[in-house]
């Protein structure tokens, strides 16, 4: 069976750390960073990148359109 592997890129400076993507991720890939961006937000990042399946749920719910999603079949 083909395995699906995904990856997410968050535009750190645009992210406002609302956490909706964290909530929407079915694989618990995303988390809010302890670091802040220049505007003082704890931006979202891939805490468990290996678990990402590239489902795009995070991107779909992101109000700031700062998430880009990639996916490959291996």
């Amino acid at each position: 069976m083909a395995k699906i592997k995904g990856a997410v890129v968050v535009d750190n400076e645009v992210c406002k750390g609302c956490g909706l993507c964290v909530e929407a991720c079915p694989e618990e890939v995303l988390a809010l960073n302890r670091e802040m961006n220049s505007r003082g937000y704890h931006y979202s990042y891939m805490e468990n990148p290996d678990a990402c399946i590239g489902c795009s749920n995070c991107g779909v719910v992101c109000p700031d359109a700062c998430i880009t999603v990639y996916r490959v079949k291996i």
């Binding site: 590239g54 991107g59 880009t68 990639y70 490959v72």
Partner: peptide
């Protein structure tokens, strides 16, 4: 080529 979701 692997892009599945991005900003319009």
């Amino acid at each position: 080529e692997n892009l599945v979701y991005g900003k319009s």
